[in-house]
Design a protein around this nucleic acid. Structure first.
Lengths: 340, 340
DNA sequence: CTGAAAGCGCTTACAG
DNA sequence: CTGAAAGCGCTTACAG
């Protein structure tokens, strides 16, 4: 390593004390302009770059934001294979970077271990995506650090949050299907019991069915992982259920897998079976068949999450923010109107 | 913020000096077992979490790895929309995390500014994906920090590198097309002049044409951005060129856009026009039509990059590593055999 | 085997 | 407006 240029070197060069250098670097009021210029010149000349570790040590500010993304499985890779998270992350990174924050992304087993990292690194704030055990949220609360929960249905309204009305989104999706003449409506979903996004969307599905007095049939519910593979896999079961005229996949990634799987067993979409998704991820466009889906603004979700953590860091104001972004149906090509 | 438990608190609790705590925490040899146990008990009791800022300040080690991913445009979001990067990142993160490193991902304008960040944060190493101006690599060299270049054709063989033989991959792709009876072969590519992956793949394309004495026709080359949109956009031009029987898209994301665009103007794949891609990104599977493409192992690329930076940090050995991962054709459904 | 002490590079009252 | 000095929480020779 090259020897580091420190604040002392700059002080010597500029002929002032290190305190003055610090004042200039941090743009504090009350430095004579002439002095400031001398200092700036010295900084430039020596190419001085402050050591953030030192700054962090004394000021307890790191300009680091932790972002927690669910993992597929324990101790495995990030869920970046689900484009939803990629798009979200991209938005977060961009908005943090504009304000001189860096992001530490991690798929750490989200537990005490993660909080240790938060403390170790003096993280200024964190953005947590998804649902976790109550215990984790308890620990998080104790950590007492600006936190934004994204897509969490944590009952405890202690944290800032950014989300959508998943239940409503699923409701309008299902209602749309019913209004298009469908009655035997399957649903492909992630684990329902966990009390997260998947269960809310499932509730919305049931809401719509109830409203139209359509019975909820257990064997129309296909529960598994929220990934492409499960979509493919479940297609076989669905193809055997001849009564189904449409399937609501609670995530686009599932819908895409499902369609792929359905086609591979000779089922045409939407002629034989219609499909509706949820999220409107970017690659839904890639599909040759435009996916009819419930659109949410993923970029904005990331942007809001970033803005709120930062705001919460700067203004110590404890006024909690709970943002609910809108959803809407986007009608494309995968749902057929059914004439009874 | 809660008051932080420091090494002093632990020392007091355990009745030893702070040096001893440090030895235990860092698993240094030569602490009596009895003492170590006392210390461990105190650490657990107080829930002591070391401050990495302080450690970094004194030891110049941060356990932070910077990862630089290309941006779509100046000052914009990350290119996470290209799943290639998502998959790569996912692999890097996982392999770093296993070894207690964290990753700082950034789409910073890759210039002096980025290097400042590297120095500010005392980053232990960096992984740079893609091509940048020579000047940047010069600066990088001066920074004298373990660095792995991924998919870079930097002439300077100073850095560790992980890549594939892009030219060869493009060559076998094009050859495969020729052997299947195609002669009018279009190519859709990113900017060729930049001397990166795109130009290499373009060279491979030309290699194959030359080998079979097929003239290189300028109007068969479609140059633009490596993204889905350009694929769609270029489809219109290609549809007007009635002689083309096949198009080589130098990235799957381009191929997918192209196919979408082609279909939208009523062209059938592969009946009317065949398409071959490059990368074998995960979502190529999502496509209802399996994309014939040149496969590279993206996960392994990320894994190797992570392993090499870490190795290079631990062993100060300057033996440079240049890894070239294999490529192979994956034949699926988008290329038709043409009977002349 | 363990402790006292210097020092890493900063920030921030405080005094002048 | 500027500087001397304390202190942030660690690590690491060095002495014993």
């Amino acid at each position: 390593m090259n020897k580091r240029v420190t604040i002392k070197d700059v002080a010597r060069e500029a002929g002032v004390s290190i305190a003055t250098i610090s004042y200039v670097v941090n743009k504090k009021e009350g430095v004579r302009e002439e002095t400031a210029e001398k200092v700036s010149a010295a900084i430039k000349k020596l190419n001085y770059i402050p050591d953030l570790s030192a700054r962090s040590l004394v000021s307890n500010r790191s300009n680091l934001i932790g972002v927690v993304i669910p993992q597929t499985e324990e101790d495995k890779e990030l869920m970046l294979k689900n484009p939803f998270y990629s798009e979200f992350l991209s938005a977060v990174e961009y908005n943090l970077r504009k304000n001189n924050f860096q992001l530490i992304i991690s798929g750490t087993n989200i537990d005490k271990g993660y909080l240790d990292m938060v403390v170790e690194r003096n993280m200024d704030g964190i953005i947590v995506v998804g649902m976790y055990p109550d215990e984790f949220f308890e620990d998080l609360k104790k950590a007492n650090i600006p936190t934004v929960l994204v897509d969490s249905y944590c009952k405890d309204h202690y944290f800032h949050s950014v989300q959508i009305n998943d239940r409503y989104g699923a409701y309008i999706a299902t209602k749309y299907l019913i209004e298009n003449g469908h009655e035997n409506i399957g649903i492909v979903t992630g684990k329902i019991k966990t009390g997260g996004v998947a269960s809310e969307r499932y509730l919305g599905y049931k809401d719509a069915l109830k409203e139209f007095d359509i019975p909820i049939i257990e064997k129309n519910v296909f529960e598994g992982n929220v990934d492409f593979e499960f979509g493919i896999q479940v297609a076989k079961q669905i193809s055997k259920n001849k009564e189904l005229t449409v399937v609501f996949a609670i995530a686009d990634i599932l819908a895409l897998g499902l369609i792929k799987g359905l086609k591979s067993v000779g089922i045409n979409i939407p002629e034989d079976i219609s499909v509706i998704g949820f999220d409107d991820i970017y690659i839904s466009k890639i599909f040759d068949l435009g996916l009819t889906t419930v659109k949410q603004d993923i970029y904005k979700k990331g942007q809001k999450a970033a803005e709120i953590v930062m705001k919460s860091i700067f203004e110590k104001s404890k006024t909690k923010q709970e943002i609910v972004l809108p959803v809407e149906i986007v009608i494309r090509e995968t749902v057929k109107k059914r004439i009874k």
